[in-house]
Design a protein around this nucleic acid. Sequence first.
DNA 1: AATGAATGAGTCTTCATTCAT
DNA 2: TATGAATGAAGACTCATTCAT
Lengths: 215, 215, 215, 215
Amino acid sequence: MSPSPQNERGAENGDKGAALRSRLVGAAEQLIQERPLVSITARDIARAADVSGGVLYNYFASKNDLLAAALARRHSLLAARIDEILPPPGAATIEENLTAFCRGVLKMHREMLPLATELHTDPDLFRKFIGAIHREPFGPRQVRRPIVSYLREEQQLGRIDPDADAGAVATLLLGSTFMLAMHSQMGAGKPGAGQSLPAIVRTLIRGLAPQTGQT
Amino acid sequence: MSPSPQNERGAENGDKGAALRSRLVGAAEQLIQERPLVSITARDIARAADVSGGVLYNYFASKNDLLAAALARRHSLLAARIDEILPPPGAATIEENLTAFCRGVLKMHREMLPLATELHTDPDLFRKFIGAIHREPFGPRQVRRPIVSYLREEQQLGRIDPDADAGAVATLLLGSTFMLAMHSQMGAGKPGAGQSLPAIVRTLIRGLAPQTGQT
Amino acid sequence: MSPSPQNERGAENGDKGAALRSRLVGAAEQLIQERPLVSITARDIARAADVSGGVLYNYFASKNDLLAAALARRHSLLAARIDEILPPPGAATIEENLTAFCRGVLKMHREMLPLATELHTDPDLFRKFIGAIHREPFGPRQVRRPIVSYLREEQQLGRIDPDADAGAVATLLLGSTFMLAMHSQMGAGKPGAGQSLPAIVRTLIRGLAPQTGQT
Amino acid sequence: MSPSPQNERGAENGDKGAALRSRLVGAAEQLIQERPLVSITARDIARAADVSGGVLYNYFASKNDLLAAALARRHSLLAARIDEILPPPGAATIEENLTAFCRGVLKMHREMLPLATELHTDPDLFRKFIGAIHREPFGPRQVRRPIVSYLREEQQLGRIDPDADAGAVATLLLGSTFMLAMHSQMGAGKPGAGQSLPAIVRTLIRGLAPQTGQT
DNA sequence: AATGAATGAGTCTTCATTCAT
DNA sequence: TATGAATGAAGACTCATTCAT
């Protein structure tokens, strides 16, 4: 009947209810950042939100629904960073821009990684997360679209080959950055995954074709 | 010195013992492919191996040790495919070769993905997996090294810019392929992630630099 | 400050909660009297308290914590009897008093015996018991102190040699009684350990020194 | 059919068999000294005896039967010490003799204590131990009898009141010593239970009766 | 609407004992 | 007779979920 909560049993008093709901999500989000998802119990969340054990079920159909909401929120927050990271088209050099950008993405990915992997452990949770993400303001392409836009603008400025496939470039950059994030996650205290970034960007810019008729 | 079990208890039998041990690993491997790791109980594995509940503990110190062994085995099997996938240097064109290669890697990554992510759920399991993998024939760089070698050979043949950073190229290829795998995993029934591969490879080969003074 | 549960989880209910907690302890206490400690499972206790399997862990951190509480309660109850047993100083004869007293202690020891011995099986349980006992009204010297006091008073009344070491007397009496309790425990259906008590008391009173210059 | 092993399934080859049987008992005995009885598994014993897991059941009907045999052997060994401890009647003074004796018993009791308590945890084991002990050379009174004999001899020598009840004295001495052993066991690092021994002995010798007409 | 005690199914793991070789 | 792998019955403990107040 009420507008906001749709397929969850929601707080019918539109205000205090929504606040509590949000507090639960916030508490869950916090916990997710701090420890392995699997170690988080329904009671932990309630305690972190400073409410009693059962409330959860007044706002969410199950623990996983709450978790999915929290993961979606966290995902959105992280994904939103992409805008702060992107350099303004036209300024500096392409290489500098992309390197700086990748550095930012690397950090973002490092935080997204646990989120992404933990999601895969529980199909039910995953499904609910996907559902939640699609109801979020922007959805999953939040990360991909801005970088594609940037590349297109640079192409129009003539600083990037207009025949290059911007989507492919985005995949190459985001993918390699994600992989670096994974490696840095695995090799605990290793030197630093960021060091390979400049070489990656430079390689992508120059391409693999042998430079014909040059030194 | 002996190839038999070393620091796990049990199976002095050298034959029937090793066989059962292997059967357990096989059963676990099978289950891992079929369902979420977290849903697999110790008893499930025993049942799948058609033995009684406790046997597991005659061959492994814990359920996680068995799981780690199974994951390691599965990882090795998957990683070994890389050799079949790699085209012979010098033949066909670089673009064809890399596209075909990436197509193979994509398939491999699709199968590795659950494995990789599920590993991240349980730190203990992860540690044990790393331990197990290091005792395996080749270890973790099984995937990366062959492609780097291939690229170097092509550089020597003059078909790839000798100044290109082979390691960076590998990261770009493997990373973007991995990302495609993730996306295809998420968008369950979607068309096919493989379709973007040719564009990706072509883009990487050509680079981003505007083609100066050319048609 | 509050009398309610302190460092165990659960039972904020202050009333119904404490009641169940107490019921659990009571049930455990009962079982402890009836059968070997080791044979008592967590579920047995729950069943005896007529609650479901998991409740135990809402009130105690572990089965052993509950057991320790029950043992402590039982110990306190038994030890408290000592006061009812002790005769009033000055009345009757020393011999009668001590004999009657020892008879009471013998019974007490018989009931304490299993408790004492079973405690020694499990270091963890033992530690927890000691912890619990120290939080009890009187603590472990509940048994020893009253008898020492009694002896001192009789010394002041001149009915016991003022040079006798009251502590030593207590040890002699309690020790020999304890040993009788052990023997009676071992020789299941034997005649009765109580029969040697009068001789023991008389012997202690008279001492071993040959009676010089007397009939 | 064969003479020696009676109600256990015994080794029928009268020599190697008996040796192995004895080795098992020895191994168990050793383990009993080293760690809590409950922590000792059937396999532990087999391993300690350097034989395979199943042999045990060729010589004993159950793990507990083996354990009972080991406990009985250990008990006998400890109890046999009493003879070395007892001073020769007539020498030194009664007080010195009894104090020295009690000191020895205290040590013996300290070693017997775990044995005694652990026995009480398992009725089945206890029963079997009692059975085993009765088949041993001397049986359970091994400890009590020598001290009673000593006391009687001193009585005949006139150094102890001939009217004193030697049995009662034995109970008083052994009981209080046993209690000291228990206390020293409980109060882990405490000063030393042996210090109260002289007072105890002196008190027993002098008795409680007020010294009439004396200093 | 909030509470939080109660529920009970489900997990891993241990270990005495058996039995085919 | 010795072996030691296999068995399977328990046991302690966790935790999402329900529901009377």
